[in-house]
């Protein structure tokens, strides 16, 4: 079937099997390999994308569900102020080790920080609780999201 959706702010139309997993559509068909697969069963969060601004697990979605949706992947992050702020914080706070969970983490962080004020550490941990990381022990990831939240909040105050 033809699936039409908005992908990282650009219109996208693709002919695809309607039950193709979205993670496969992104990675293999569109070569957007920033979205990772770690488990295939919705337990690790590495495949997290935003659909209409909300986090979704692309390993548990089929292509037909994207029709008419607005999709953001890690490749579209840098184009937004919040996304770029989050990426910078992950890099500078040392939140990145093997990096395989990071795109999913950043998407979860973006959804969390869009909810408003700079969240505290407990709230950040809750917000990231669907994203597994095996390298960092999460401490520096929480540092990064906390800082991104502060930076974004400060940015909003200035405006």
């Amino acid at each position: 079937m033809k699936v039409r959706f908005e992908l990282n702010e650009a219109p996208m139309e693709i002919d695809v099997a309607p039950d193709r997993r979205v993670v496969d559509l992104l990675r293999e068909d569109l070569r957007l390999t920033g979205t990772k697969e770690g488990c295939g069963t919705g337990e690790c969060g590495a495949c997290t994308i935003l659909v209409n601004g909300q986090t979704r697990l692309s390993c548990l979605m089929v292509a037909a569900q994207l029709d008419g949706a607005r999709v953001t992947t890690v490749e579209g992050l840098a184009a937004t102020t919040a996304g770029a702020t989050i990426q910078r914080a992950f890099v500078e706070e040392g939140a990145v080790q093997c990096g395989f969970c990071i795109p999913g983490m950043e998407m979860a962080a973006l959804a969390l920080l869009r909810q408003g004020d700079a969240p505290g550490r407990e709230c950040i941990r809750e917000g990231l609780s669907g994203n597994l990381c095996r390298c960092t022990g999460y401490t520096k990831i929480v540092d990064a999201v906390e800082r991104a939240g502060r930076d974004l909040h400060a940015g909003r105050e200035e405006q």
Partner: peptide
Amino acid sequence: IRYDAAAKAAGT
């Protein structure tokens, strides 16, 4: 800063 962090954070 880790030299690989930016590419990993960008998904590239």
